[in-house]
Design a protein around this nucleic acid. Sequence first.
RNA 1: GGGGGCGUAGUUAAGUUGGUUAUAACGCCGGCCUGUCACGCCGGAGACCGCGAGUUCGAGUCUCGUCGCUCCCGCCA
Length: 595
Amino acid sequence: MSTQFSSSLTASFRSHVCGALRADNVGSQVKLSGWVQNWRDHGGVIFIDLRDRYGLTQVVFNPENAADAHELAHMLRSEFVVQVEGEVVTRPDGTVNANMATGEIEVLVAQVKILNKSETPPFSIDDTREVGENVRLQYRYLDLRRQPLQEAMIVRHKVTKLIRDYLDKQNFLEIETPVLTKSTPEGARDYLVPSRTNPGSFFALPQSPQLFKQLLMVAGFDRYFQIVKCFRDEDLRADRQPEFTQIDMELAFVEADDIINLVEGMIALIFKELKDFDSVLPYTRITYQDALDNYGLDAPDIRFDMHLVDLCRVFAETSFKVFRSVLDKKGIIKGLNLKGGASLSRREIDDLLEVVKIYGAKGLAWIKVNEDGWQSPIVKFFEESEVEALGQAMAAEAGDLLLFVADKAEITNESLGRLRLHLGTKMGLIDEDKLSFCWVVDFPMFAWDAQEKRHTAIHHPFTAPLDEDLDKLETEPLAVKAKAYDLVLNGVEVGGGSIRIHDAEIQTKVFNLLNIEADEAQEKFGFLLDALGFGAPPHGGIAFGLDRLMMLLLKRQSIREVIAFPKTQKATCLLSGAPNTVSPRQLRDLSIKKA
RNA sequence: GGGGGCGUAGUUAAGUUGGUUAUAACGCCGGCCUGUCACGCCGGAGACCGCGAGUUCGAGUCUCGUCGCUCCCGCCA
């Protein structure tokens, strides 16, 4: 990034930016424009730290050198916008500031112009002290002046530029898809936009450009990408905003491996360029089943090596009532071995119970493996043979804490999986500097929704089944695996995609399984189905969550820290006041009545 | 829809078992200071303790409600 302006376009305001000047520049006449970060008035000489996004330069007003400028400098306050003109000089001996990139020099001001005054800002721009997020969001334009958000925006730009350059070299075309599009009731809640010209009808903002990118494949643009806003009207989280940015890609004439290889290169490049991190390619691949078995979650954090252990076999014949009844109801029992955890207090173990309770587990059994035997409220219910088998299965050693959940499979897996993460953080088992990528593959096509009594698509209804599972589509749908793949970084899903169905017959079968009738499918996705009938090439794609990627890249606690103008948890904008009520006139135009 | 946390000068925080005039730091305003860079020194202003109700002789503190911010569960094909 250039830090010096030679262009005559900008020369009227500045010859250099505020981070540019070095000892080499001593003696030259320069012009700087920027914001007053700080001022130090010594009665005689006045120092100003002038800031722009490139850095800080100390400028000096000396009454003996330029009396008028010095007089004017008394008026300067925080965040005033000023232009100064003067000579670059070396700082006197002993006053070099090693903490500043420009610390060897200063600008001796001959002329100063106040370009604009500023109100006293509600928080200081240079202070690293935490400021309440509501204040930061209300004055986001000031928050954006501060270093963390400056860095985030700059890095974000670098990332999207790397992506565009990388994909351009790979023959991708960036093509825009509509923002005013059609509501698809499957999936997340849509943001709706009323159509004035079609009273009673609504556009939906896209949850993803899914259908349109598939149409682009039919159209013959065999490599498409887009860095695109997507919208979901669901509740927010630290890593979820109602509008977010996706790196969206689709390719024709490819298999899953082709896509995986291609985007691995892109992700590896990003982390190499911005973190100097050398990826070992290809990234590890973990099957969905292995992820659940070993980590309890479909987005495993493999930065640390603690696995869930299946104990169903150990306790197959148990007479311990709690375990017995779970097994009889087709539930499962799994355990975690927290190495060295025997030193945890009773109170700390109770806190762990609270963690698993969040995810529906009713209890958390535990055993402290002490030098002189096992200490536990439940061991007395076990047979000697069970104790031995358990010790072996868990590789128990003196000092360990064994933790167990027995429940329905989903609850056991998720609660222990989350407990594993909790322990990883709390016990310092996670190296926070580590970047552990993995692909999760072989997702099932369908899940069974017991409440609605129907199959639901785990990925989406256009995902293709594995070729070898095609014959199970009708007989054993829950055993069918999909050509789907997720990229997981440090336990966070950062991307996901699939090979799509390009065969109308298979698509019909999948819709049938999802209880989507032919006429319903036609009404919802007819335009895609029609298109698939006109020579759709085999195709597939992937989408990455840019915000989440940025959050991990910059180690921020929230997605809001990498978005210029984020929304609050209630999906409002504290800066603009959106959403707001509108005039009766506007509603009348749209044929909308308030409920 | 549900559970937890927070809300006190502009900002960040302290505020004891309910008890005189609600503290501090930074910032702000005024003054002094010619080498600072978290400049220093002297002085000053600044708070309807989120809002509303209740309990009490007395509420920043206790109770209820409400609003806002936040974390999580549900939700997010």
